[in-house]
Design a protein around this nucleic acid. Structure first.
Length: 816
RNA sequence: GCCGAGGUGGCGGAAUGGCAGACGCAGUGGACUUAAAAUCCACGGUCCGCAAGGACAUGCGGGUUCGAGUCCCGCCCUCGGCACCA
């Protein structure tokens, strides 16, 4: 046998053998349960970085484990291939985005193969190919038919860096672009939307899926369901047709304290109801709000500002007129874009009223309140006051009673609102799926007939960003004929958000070249939904939300039966640089996986990444830590190559029993740990087992069946995490190819039981003695043994124990 | 401010309410070697002590318990998400 494990030679050899044998080609097999495992596909950046390895290698280990447990595992891979970096690279380097993307994909295929993952390459999808994106277009048309895709003019998030609009989800909390970190501004544009809000309530249900609480919480917050009352305030303004302004409130109990009203600067009625003498001031305010960035608008630090419109509306409950203001702390796209100002019970309204000298009327009494003015808004509960017929009612009851009253009188109605907005999918850029819509001067907006799909992205477009889609300037693309009247017409030139691509790719994997629909229904019925999905939590409110939405639409279209695309989700943490910071070129702390693979081998690198800590926590990369992985693999290698023995002698029963106990206990630990993604403790268990086996007295058992069982189990247990290494050892020990077609070793619970245990003896809760006793010791025997110990006797010092606690198999605690 | 995850040796981390620090990295001493690397053996929380042993130790302060890293209450800090959402 070889002296040392030579990863370069061994890994290359098995990778090519697996590929030529199609070892990981998955075909449907009704005799085994299916397991559809997925790791998030990579963007075609051109380079697989440590983050990809950290996400994918453990995911592969889990998939391999499932395969050894008897499942028919499907573990596909592909490329997220549309998107801005391709265009930016094209602009700066003069390479076509298609070329750049496909070259990158080719390089990344090599890197992915070097990982030794069990990807089924026959199912690869590449989203920038017409055979993929035509089904984005087809799905768009189905959405369109059902009213789930629509065009609307709205103030959209405009990223000056990316020269395109962004979805709400792609604007970060600080008002910058998720991709390029430019400050996002607003632009009024006609844009395409997907009506995700139709599914808001259903997206709040996580029944039947096992997702991390954290992701559920993030999605729940993002959707932001709140229940309240929409109330009408009377309006009688000269020259204004409307006779009411509606507000949304979750605090109808405070309506008697509403002393003013505030409209968002974009509120449609604002211009009309402003009085002539106030016009100039209000218009200046509207204009300033329009120009302000999201950052400026959303800063809560900033002092409240606003302008009086000169108009009044009627608080129907008090019967009193209240002034109407406009202020930018009111958001046009939430609720009705107007709020009632209740300064006594809302901190924002309090600040506003204080600044502009508006009346503050307490309507929910704080404890011990005697009518004095409030120093700050009181937002807790209490009895209602100054509220006409509702005085004395608890405000919790008041909420219901006032809502009832509003509904009976017709002044308002109960309503649910969401923070979630419809998904804006238009992008004014070249490298994406063309939206299949045609504009005809006579027939208007027309969907491209399905038999004319795909609407192919022309290769020869000039794709410099101008703020308009480059397709607008491609005459051959832009000019077309109306599918209805045959007259001259033009195409929609915006392309789709790339998150459309990843919203359903798990279905396309099942039949990537199917031409009669987005996926083959027979394959879909067999494989979907995905049993285990793994990837980063940064996608919680983008990809993972969109994919759930898409799946529900697919279900309503009759294309799938399940309600959710991904049954189980696991979010791995983030691998950081050695300095504990995010890896980035600008910080200079990037660890290149290729270098490590060349130096230590893929298996050692995989081992190190999994051993580093709990997978969901991530952590800093430690350049020296990888030595430990290499050292362990070499120890196993030496152990097996020097001491493998196919003998099946019985051996001395006592040490044999001890060896088998080690073997079976290790199998038990490893099985549990890998099933639960606890790769670090799985490897620790294997290391402990190795340390035990290399002890000279363990090797006395060479030649026994127990010894062979131990080494075979060890090799089999390393197969999921170090696939090449295990394959080589399996072959070298004379076993038939392939180790990856073997069953995971199983343990016999009876063999894991200890004969002898360490009985810990405490006196007043402090450990004073440790005794080796038989595992089956009785309570009385244990207590007697504890009291008999000289050390314990010295501590007791003749006193009478008040209590003696016995924990079976563990300890005796003598309480004095 | 709200929601979520955390805080344990020099470092990464382990521990169904029951021996805190498994496993590993780095370090120290030793073996092998002309030497080094590799490998193997041993030792590594802090303080007192020659030692046996003892005291103190899981962010801070309380509590429950025979017994708390683990459970409860109140704080502090770090990270992630959301944030003028009426």
């Amino acid at each position: 046998m070889a002296e040392r494990f030579d990863p370069q030679a061994v890994e290359a050899k098995w990778q090519s053998r697996w590929a030529s044998d199609g070892l990981y080609r998955t075909v449907w097999d009704p005799s085994r349960p299916k397991w559809y495992a997925m790791t998030m596909f990579p963007y075609t950046s051109g380079d697989l970085h440590c983050g990809h390895w950290y996400a994918m290698a453990p995911s592969d280990t889990h998939a391999r484990y499932k395969r050894m447990k008897g499942y028919n595992v499907l573990f596909p891979i592909g490329f997220d291939a549309f998107g801005l970096p391709a265009e930016n690279a094209a602009i700066s380097r003069g390479i076509h985005p298609f070329r750049w993307t496909m070259d990158n994909a080719q390089r990344m295929r090599g890197q992915l193969r070097s990982m030794g993952a069990m990807f089924d390459w026959d199912r690869e999808v590449v989203t920038c190919l017409p055979e993929y994106y035509q089904w984005n277009q087809w799905l768009f048309l189905q959405f369109y038919k059902r009213g789930l895709a629509y065009r609307a003019k709205a103030p959209a998030n405009w990223c000056p860096g990316c020269q395109t609009v962004l979805a709400n989800e792609q604007v970060m909390a600080d008002g910058t672009c998720e991709r390029c970190h430019s400050v996002v501004t607003k632009r009024d544009l006609s844009q395409w939307f997907f009506r995700i809000t139709n599914y808001a309530d259903e997206l709040l249900q996580f029944d039947g899926i096992e997702w991390p609480e954290r992701v559920q919480a993030m999605q729940t917050n993002w959707i932001g369901r709140s229940f309240g009352v929409e109330v009408s305030f009377g309006l009688n303004a000269p020259g204004v047709a409307e006779n009411e302004v509606r507000v949304f409130t979750t605090r109808p109990d405070t309506i008697y304290g509403a002393t003013f009203m505030v409209l968002a600067p974009e509120h449609p009625l604002l211009g009309a109801l402003t009085t002539p003498e106030r016009k100039a001031e209000v218009e200046a305010y509207m204009e300033a709000a329009r120009r302000a960035t999201e950052i400026e608008r959303q800063s809560t630090e900033r002092e409240k500002s606003g302008v009086f419109t000169g108009a009044y509306c009627l608080n129907r409950f008090t019967g009193k007129p209240i002034p109407i203001y406009t202020a930018d702390y009111v958001l046009v796209h939430y609720g009705t874009g107007a709020v009632m100002g209740v300064p006594a019970h809302d901190t924002r309204d309090f600040a506003f009223a204080t600044k502009y000298g508006l009346p503050i009327v307490t309507v929910v009494a704080p404890p011990g309140w005697r009518g004095q003015p409030l120093a700050e808004a009181y937002i807790e509960s209490g009895p209602m006051v100054n509220s006409g017929p509702f005085d004395g009612v608890s405000n919790a009851d008041g909420k219901e009673r006032i809502a009832d009253h509003a509904e009976t009188t017709g002044w308002g109605r109960r309503r649910v609102t969401y923070r979630l907005r419809d998904w804006l999918i238009s992008r004014q850029r070249y490298w994406g799926t063309p939206i299949p819509i045609i504009y005809c001067p006579t027939c208007g907006e027309q969907p491209v007939p399905e038999d004319q799909l795909p609407v192919v992205l022309p290769e020869d477009a000039e794709f410099k960003p101008t703020g308009e889609s480059p397709l607008r300037y491609h005459a051959g693309f832009y000019n077309t004929v109306c599918p209805r009247c045959g007259g001259a017409a033009t195409r929609e030139t915006d392309t789709m958000d790339t998150f459309v691509d990843s919203s359903w790719y798990q279905m396309r994997y099942l039949s990537p070249h199917y031409s009669k629909g987005p996926f083959d229904p027979a394959e879909a019925d067999r494989w979907h939904p995905v049993d285990q999905y793994t990837g980063g939590a940064e996608h919680a409110t983008m990809h993972l939300l969109y994919a759930r939405f898409f799946h529900k639409v697919l279900r309503d279209l009759g294309l799938v039966e399940s309600n959710e695309p991904y049954v189980r989700l696991f979010n791995q943490g983030q691998i950081l640089g050695t300095d504990g910071q995010r890896m980035s070129k600008s910080r200079g702390n990037v660890v290149a996986p290729d270098d490590n693979v060349a130096r230590y081998g893929a298996d050692a690198f995989r081992t190190y990444l999994m051993f580093l800590g709990p997978w969901d926590q991530g952590g800093p990369f430690n350049t020296e830590g990888i030595n430990g992985a290499t050292r362990w693999l070499n120890r196993v290698w030496t152990l097996v190559s020097d001491h493998w023995d196919a003998g099946d002698a019985d051996g001395d029963p006592v040490p044999v029993r001890e060896l088998r106990r080690w073997t079976h206990r290790t199998i038990k630990r490893v099985d549990h740990d890998v099933a639960d993604f606890h790769f670090n403790t799985m490897l620790a268990a294997l290391m402990e087992f190795t340390n035990y086996l290399v002890r000279p007295d363990s090797q006395q058992l060479r030649g026994t069946a127990a010894w062979r069982e131990a080494l075979e189990s060890l090799i089999l247990m390393t197969a999921p995490s170090t696939p090449h290494f295990a394959e080589e050892l399996w072959t070298l020990t004379g076993h038939p190819y392939s180790v990856h077609q073997q069953a995971f070793p199983s343990f016999d619970p009876a063999l894991t039981v200890e004969d002898e245990i360490t009985l810990v003896v405490q006196v007043n809760g402090k450990v004073r003695e440790k005794l080796a006793v038989a595992a089956g010791i009785s309570e009385d025997q244990a207590k007697a043994a504890a009291l008999a110990s000289p050390k314990v006797a010295a501590q007791i010092d003749g006193r009478q124990p008040r209590q003696v606690i016995y924990v079976p198999g563990r300890l005796v605690n003598i309480v004095l």
